[in-house]
Amino acid sequence: FGIQGKTSPLCVLVDSREISSGPEVASCLRIKYSIKTEIQSLCGCDYIVSNRMAVTRKLVSDFASSMNKNKFTEHIHQLQNMFERICIIVEKDRVKAGETSRIFQRTKYYDSMLSALISAGIKILFSTSQEETAGLLAELVNLEKRKNAAIVVPTEVKGPKQQALQFYLSIPNVSYITALNLCHQFSTVGQMINSSVDKISSCAQVSSHKAEEIYRYIHYAFDSQMLPARCIP
């Protein structure tokens, strides 16, 4: 498909919540690395750097606290359902003025978390500041571009396309970028739902496994008997 120009600017999708927790990351990406940042509500992903990779930014204090274990694993599961590749950037906590930097006590929990993540093939990067995190994101964007996975569709959605986007987003385990690709690569929703697995795979830029999942969903025969009681009006 022809929209991929050599000159198209690099692009990152940023979750709107990240703007409050890490404002310098997005501005640094824009100013220092000239990467286009599109701020959207991404339902759980912090950054989407390519058609297949999500990046989660975690502060060390948050990552190292076993209190957050369930929430964190749940979050990673969700990402695993949507993305082929996941990357976690563990960022050092900011030291507020007048506060002495706390010494990080390495725990068994911290090491076991790292071991489990690595063994599941999840990449972990370490950063000391928001600027450095932006640098790492920029590296990842470039790396994914070299592997032909860069985001090439327009990130703005206007007019009736917005309804189509919401429709695609409601498909289980479809990420924001996949929905965006579907939105721009198919001229109508009717065309998308009549497509083959291969066509979905190439247009949405997803694995054939993922395309099959979407295809099955479109063709799934609804049975109202199977509907949980809470869903019946």
Binding site: Y217, F222, L227
Partner: peptide, 9 residues
Amino acid sequence: LAEPSVLNT
């Protein structure tokens, strides 16, 4: 179960 999702879609 896909039913609740389909209904939502």
